[in-house]
Design a protein around this nucleic acid. Structure first.
Lengths: 125, 125
DNA sequence: GCAAACCGGTTTGTGATACAAACCATGGAG
DNA sequence: CTCCATGGTTTGTATCACAAACCGGTTTGC
């Protein structure tokens, strides 16, 4: 299971998480609760919409515009999958407690040797 | 709790997760098990080292060089914090089940109106 | 010996992208 | 009319993930 980069990006993950809890949220609310600049929210939300993860509903409340955001079914499912993908990654880690040893290295002043070699090679004009 | 972008990047998260399970791993092993290109692994590992999250140990195994990677204590702690930050984010979501309603919108042919406005404003040369 | 291929990485070029500043359209106050 | 506020969108820039090219050295074929 791969991590979905559209969702994984921290800001978008927070947006998705937020939306997964509230049914609907408007622009101002997301800006203030997530502490984002307007431009930042706007562009992230564009991507989530392009991916089909959120539904954008523009309307007029009286005369002023208002934009509401909500998770689509696809978005909800994708978020769920993302959480489990992260869980899997974390779980896999613990089960690998004793996988590799690879080589009994001679272990001299190895890093110093490397550094020395580098200096030599650079100096060789 | 903020998400640490150094760790959050998918490739690095997988590297960290991998290392958190194995004590030590060498370059070739990480390339093959994580399916990365050499350049990609090299640059990511650079960043993890720069952040003080992994320790890089170069040495000679016979005549050929060998590079081993391991989590530092700092790295291990940071990873642990990252997992709990993700948990927190996910948990916060569920507890917000009924936070916002915001406005009973009139709900006309809203998006169409917007589109119309845009067309008009662009046309106003 | 000498070229060609390989090994273990590192550096470089580039296309994508996160972010905020600047902008745009509208509404209301004075 | 001018000035500020609201609700966003577009643009510019700085960063960054990634793979291709490279590099020092070693082994292999001839």
């Amino acid at each position: 299971m791969e991590l979905d980069r559209i969702i994984h990006e921290p800001v978008r993950l927070r947006i998705m998480a937020m939306l997964s809890g509230v049914d609907t949220a408007d622009f101002k609310f997301l800006v203030s609760t997530l502490g984002l600049s307007k431009g930042n929210l706007s562009s992230h939300v564009d991507k989530l919409e392009a991916a089909g993860y959120v539904r954008v509903t523009k309307s007029f409340n009286g005369k002023i515009t208002n934009t509401q955001y909500a998770l689509t079914a696809k978005g909800r499912k994708a978020l769920e999958k993302h959480w489990t993908a992260l869980d899997d990654l974390r779980a896999a880690t613990k089960s690998k407690q004793k996988s590799e040893a690879i080589a009994p290295l001679p272990r001299k002043s190895s890093t110093e040797l490397i550094r020395c070699r580098k200096r030599l090679s650079r100096g060789a004009s």
